[in-house]
Design a binder for these strands. Structure first.
Lengths: 191, 191
DNA sequence: CCGACCATGTAATATGTTACATGATTGT
DNA sequence: ACAATCATGTAACATATTACATGGTCGG
């Protein structure tokens, strides 16, 4: 279900193509809901059939076809209805920690390597999240600016606040994972 | 792939039935890989066919059939090989934060409700994780005790250490989410 | 005897990943 | 000309969810 709303949400800032969505899912939207193009293109057609978005065929240059979609009123209504629902939390699936608890037959080096990969992973993530959040709050993010232009002063404030806390939440998580990995590495050395 | 190793990992502490696994992974109190019985039973048969586990038919009472599986040497080898691999991080999928960033057309009340649900969710999770970790470290967790009995003093220390950090990592995350939700609620009130 | 729990399965559907496939445009 | 990027699709497979389905055991 969430992919559908990720798409509707993206289009609620303005029209966009499937390719735009693919880019976005590798970029900032992808921090909250990742999807590959093989999921996105079929879902766009489903959404059009369901009347939640509308597509217009355009061309780039002479022959390259491109469909640009925009949200219908019904799409906007369903998106808003979804955001108002109380969040559903999916069951935990965390392969890294699963690996860890069954690594008690391994050498300490393999555990150290695991923790270092973890540290590295979340260090990169932290950097990306900081960059993303700063671009938004410094009003340098074109797509967010496009969204803000649709709103009044209060709406803009709320929009920026929500983006601040959402990215801030992920950022805090990354920082927690970094601190955890460092502590765990230190404790491992004392073992 | 991870389901397979969740099962092998569970069985690496000692034999168990599909139902035992369902209990472990379904209620999912502080477990790291959730799965339902409709995934578990077929996967057990796959693993048996692949020679990674072996099942014995037993009965409970007079007629109730039950299959108890144990790890084969090949299963143990493949489990260990998996735990030694560098962790792969799946793409982020976080419907709650997705909901948040598109909630800028909603009333502040709906956002407050969202954050309160979040707070509640991770408060419960924190309690479960603390309980689980304490039971393990106080040597009151039967399944872990069973596992420890298979190891020497050093192995036991490593085993407990890994469980401590793994549950501690999730616990830290829950605490981060709680702090985040509280701060965000406070900031929302000032808006 | 009845309700809670033990125990295992299948089917239909939904979601997500990887690979295969094609062709145009833009900048150097 | 060539590489990088734009742009869209399908197919096969793997994984996960929900519903349907059956029957036994144990304790009160």
């Amino acid at each position: 279900m969430a992919l559908r709303y990720a798409i509707l949400g993206y289009l609620s800032s303005g029209p966009g193509s499937g390719y735009d969505l693919v880019q976005q899912m590798d970029g900032d939207l992808g921090w909250f809901w990742a999807a590959s193009h093989s999921q996105i293109y079929p879902e766009l057609r489903n959404l059009e059939t369901a009347g939640l978005i509308e597509g217009t065929a355009t061309t780039v240059g002479e022959r390259l076809e491109k469909r640009v979609y925009s949200l219908t009123e019904e799409g906007a209504r369903q998106l808003q209805a979804w955001t108002e629902k109380t969040p559903q939390y999916r069951p935990n699936r965390d392969a890294e920690r699963l690996q860890l608890i069954f690594a008690d037959g391994n050498g300490v080096e393999s555990i150290r390597a695991h923790l270092e990969t973890h540290l590295d992973h979340f260090t990169r993530r932290r950097a990306q999240l900081i960059g993303m959040r700063d671009r938004i709050l410094n009003r340098e993010h074109p797509r967010v600016e496009q969204r803000l232009a649709l709103k009044d002063a209060q709406g803009r404030e709320l929009s920026l606040f929500l983006r601040d806390i959402a990215y801030g939440g992920d950022l805090r998580r990354a920082e927690g994972e970094i601190a955890w990995a460092k502590e765990s590495l230190a404790r491992l050395d004392e073992l």
